[in-house]
Amino acid sequence: MDFNLTTALVTVGQLFIGALYVYGGLNHFGPAAEKIVPVLTARGVPMPRQSLYAASVFQVACGACLMLGIAVVPAAIGLVVFTLAASLVMVNFWDLPPGETRDLLQGVFASNVAIIGGLLVVIAQVL
């Protein structure tokens, strides 16, 4: 079997992006939930703890699919939608006055946009 650099790079990229989601999702079942649930409550998310856990299970499952190369396109599409929704709910820098917190959240939002871009590249490689 010949070495294919493109395939190797896509595989490593899927592993890294998938790991980001698996790690983040699993983290929501620990102490991080106590910081996230009040934010979800303040943003009017119904059943905030249950919503967090359901979204986290989805996040972990889709991330694992990317890492394992299983149902890559549906998993990546799911993570695009998840990341966009989570960014709009949790990273609302536009509602904050100018300052350090707004700048930080604006950077997080930009990073999420870049991650969405990476997911779109994964989808394009698989199609």
Rank of each mutant, 00 (worst) to 15 (best):
M1S: 10
A8S: 13
T11R: 02
V12Y: 00
G13L: 01
F16G: 01
I17M: 11
G18N: 06
Y21W: 12
V22N: 07
L26Y: 15
N27E: 15
G30Y: 05
G30S: 14
G30A: 10
P38C: 02
V45E: 01
P46D: 08
Q50R: 13
L52P: 08
A55Y: 01
A61M: 14
M67S: 00
L68P: 07
I70N: 13
A71P: 00
V72T: 14
V72D: 04
P74W: 05
A75W: 06
A75D: 07
A76G: 12
I77W: 09
G78F: 01
L88C: 09
V89C: 15
V91N: 09
F93V: 09
L96V: 12
P97D: 06
P97C: 08
G99I: 01
E100W: 07
R102F: 01
D103V: 05
D103F: 00
L104Y: 15
L104W: 12
L105G: 03
G107S: 11
V108W: 07
F109M: 12
A110F: 07
A110L: 12
A110W: 00
N112Y: 05
V113Y: 00
V113R: 03
A114V: 06
I115L: 13
I116F: 02
G118E: 10
L119V: 05
V121S: 02
A124C: 03
